[in-house]
């Protein structure tokens, strides 16, 4: 198979936790290929291993067995340091709990990965204000996370995930803590990014989020049980699709 055409790829991926009796197969022999520009949604019941899969793909955890490739490079054998460098360039994370740095303002949170990637302060700042503008938070740039609503925080987190133009955005239940209006706002941004060709892996419980994807994978007990290609971008527009219009 042609490894380099895929943004993210996993072969025979296994992750077990614990030992003996309490041994849990969080991810069990998973094969996955996410081509560039694809938006992949992963669904499944709680505890089926969705978050673990995402962590493995982003190099936050190391697989017990199998291989992970990002941008045509095998990452499961990399050192922590090399993994960190890989994340800077290729991966953006969005979490259910937002995980913003509490003591930094919205703009500073967005700047942080750019600075870590070695960009100049001015470049980082320019990039941050551009992205905050794109997620509709230009006016909140100087606010601390605690002064923002959940939806606003998540939009900051999305801006932060995008600041280094990552090859892939890994989102773990990005709307899990949001109400309908905020969810809609996040979906609008995802939709925009998708049409711009951004590669996504989104773990979600939310059918509406899954419906925006190009492809839907269902997981159960650490394994993929279903892999469906959706129709792609919906001609009717997002609002009509998810039934929130009018």
């Amino acid at each position: 198979m042609n490894v380099s055409s895929a943004a993210v790829q996993a072969c025979g991926l296994v992750k077990t936790h614990g030992q003996g009796q309490s041994r849990v197969h969080a991810v069990d022999e998973v094969d996955l290929e996410v081509p560039q520009g694809q938006m992949l949604a992963v669904m499944g019941p709680s505890g089926c291993g969705k978050s673990t899969l995402l962590h493995l793909l982003g190099g936050l955890e190391r697989p017990t067995d199998g291989e992970v490739w990002v941008a045509g490079r095998r990452i499961d054998t990399l050192s922590e340091r090399a993994l960190a460098r890989m994340r800077r360039r290729s991966v953006g994370f969005v979490f259910q709990a937002f995980h913003l740095v509490e003591e930094l303002s919205a703009a500073e949170n967005v700047e942080l990965p750019a600075l870590l990637a070695g960009r100049s302060r001015r470049q980082a700042r320019r990039r941050a204000s551009l992205l905050l503008d794109r997620v509709g938070l230009a006016a909140r740039a100087r606010h601390l996370p605690s002064q923002l609503s959940g939806g606003q925080r998540q939009r900051v987190a999305i801006a932060r995930a995008l600041v280094n133009d990552p090859l892939v955005v890994l989102a773990d239940e990005p709307t899990g803590n949001l109400d309908t209006a905020a969810t809609l706002e996040v979906l609008r941004i995802f939709e925009e990014l998708r049409s711009a060709g951004q590669t996504f892996v989104i773990v979600t419980h939310d059918e509406r989020v899954a419906a925006t994807a190009d492809r839907l994978v269902s997981m159960r007990d650490g394994m993929f049980v279903d892999d469906t290609r959706l129709a792609g971008s919906h001609p009717r527009g997002l609002g009509g699709l998810i039934g929130l219009e009018g």
Binding site: A84, H99, E102, L112, L116
Partner: peptide, 12 residues
């Protein structure tokens, strides 16, 4: 905060 920085690409 440090764990978040790690996800953003800070090395140990």
């Amino acid at each position: 905060s440090m764990a978040i920085a790690r996800t953003l690409g800070a090395t140990p």
